[in-house]
C-alpha cells in the first residue's frame, strides 16, 4: 500500500532521516519504535508532505507522494494524528471534527460527514457530551480521543499515529490501544509510532526500529518482542 524508498529528510544541515525503507501492506498495523530524536516524527511528517524529502520516493497505491501538498496527501486517504495531538484550541469539539472531514466536504454530501461523526461518537461517547466545548479546554485523554476522531472523519485508508499514548493514564493507554485495534479491524491500515514499545509491538503485525535516522531492525511484532537487542534497548528487560 505504502512504500518508502530510501528516503532522506533533513532540517537545514541536520540530516534526520538517512536512507529509510519502509513498506506497509493493506490491512496491517505496523509500528515504528525508537528513542527520542530517532526520527519517528520526521518520518510521519515526511509521509504527510509537511516535510519534503531530499531524495528517495514514497509510493502510495501506485502514486508518488513526493511532491504532493499535504492536503492532497489527505485527499489520497492518508491521515495523521500528530505528536502532541494539536487540537484546534479555539474551535469546538464538533468544529474540530468537521475540520477533520474537510477533505470529504467536496466529494460527499453532509450525510457522509454526519455518518462519520456518529461513528466517532460511538467510538468515543465522551465526545458527544462535549460537542460545544472548546477543544483547548478538554483533558489530555479527551484531546487524544478527539485527535483520533478528527483523523477518522476523513475516512482514511492509512492512519498515521504519532505517540497516541503519550502522557495518558494507564487505563486510558489501554483504551487507546484497544481502539487502534478496533479501527484496524474496520479495515484501516495503521502506522503507529510509539515510545511504549512493548504494547506497540504486541499490537502490531510488523515493526521497524529506528535509530539516529536509520532503520536498524525490522520484522514481525512478536519476533521483535523477543529480540535481545530490542529487549535491552527498548523494553527495559
Amino acid at each position: 500500500m505504502l512504500k518508502l524508498l530510501s528516503i532522506h529528510t533533513s532540517y537545514g544541515h541536520i540530516k534526520a532521516l538517512k536512507d529509510i525503507d519502509i513498506e506497509i501492506a493493506k490491512g496491517e498495523i505496523v509500528c515504528l519504535i525508537g528513542s527520542n530524536g530517532a526520527g519517528k516524527t520526521t518520518t510521519l511528517l515526511t509521509i504527510s508532505g509537511i516535510l519534503k524529502p531530499d531524495s528517495g520516493d514514497m509510493i502510495f497505491e501506485g502514486e508518488s507522494l513526493k511532491n504532493m501538498a499535504p492536503h492532497n496527501v489527505v485527499n489520497k486517504g492518508i491521515c495523521q494524528v500528530p505528536e502532541g495531538r494539536r487540537i484546534f484550541p479555539r474551535l469546538t469539539v464538533s468544529e474540530n471534527l468537521e475540520m477533520g472531514a474537510y477533505s470529504i466536504g467536496k466529494r460527499q454530501k453532509t450525510k457522509g460527514k454526519q455518518y462519520n461523526m456518529e461513528k466517532v461518537f460511538n467510538l468515543f461517547p465522551v465526545l458527544k457530551e462535549r460537542t460545544k466545548q472548546m477543544g483547548g479546554t478538554l483533558s489530555g485523554g479527551e484531546q487524544q480521543m478527539l485527535a483520533i476522531g478528527r483523523a477518522l472523519m476523513a475516512n482514511p485508508k492509512l492512519l498515521l499515529l504519532d505517540e497516541p499514548s503519550l502522557g495518558l493514564a494507564p487505563i486510558m493507554v489501554s483504551k487507546i490501544f484497544k481502539t487502534i485495534k478496533e479501527i484496524n479491524e474496520e479495515g484501516v491500515t495503521i502506522l503507529l509510532v510509539e515510545q511504549n514499545a512493548k504494547a506497540a509491538l504486541r499490537l502490531s503485525h510488523r515493526g521497524y526500529v529506528l535509530e539516529n535516522g536509520v532503520i536498524k531492525l525490522s520484522g514481525r511484532g512478536e519476533d521483535l518482542l523477543h529480540n535481545e537487542n530490542v529487549k535491552k534497548a527498548y523494553l527495559g528487560d
Partner: peptide
C-alpha cells in the same frame, strides 16, 4: 480559523492552507 490557530495541523486535516 483552523489555519489561524495551527497551520501545520490544518494542512494535516486536509485544508489547503
Amino acid at each position: 480559523r483552523a489555519v489561524a490557530q495551527d497551520k501545520t495541523m490544518a494542512a494535516l486535516a486536509g485544508i489547503n492552507v
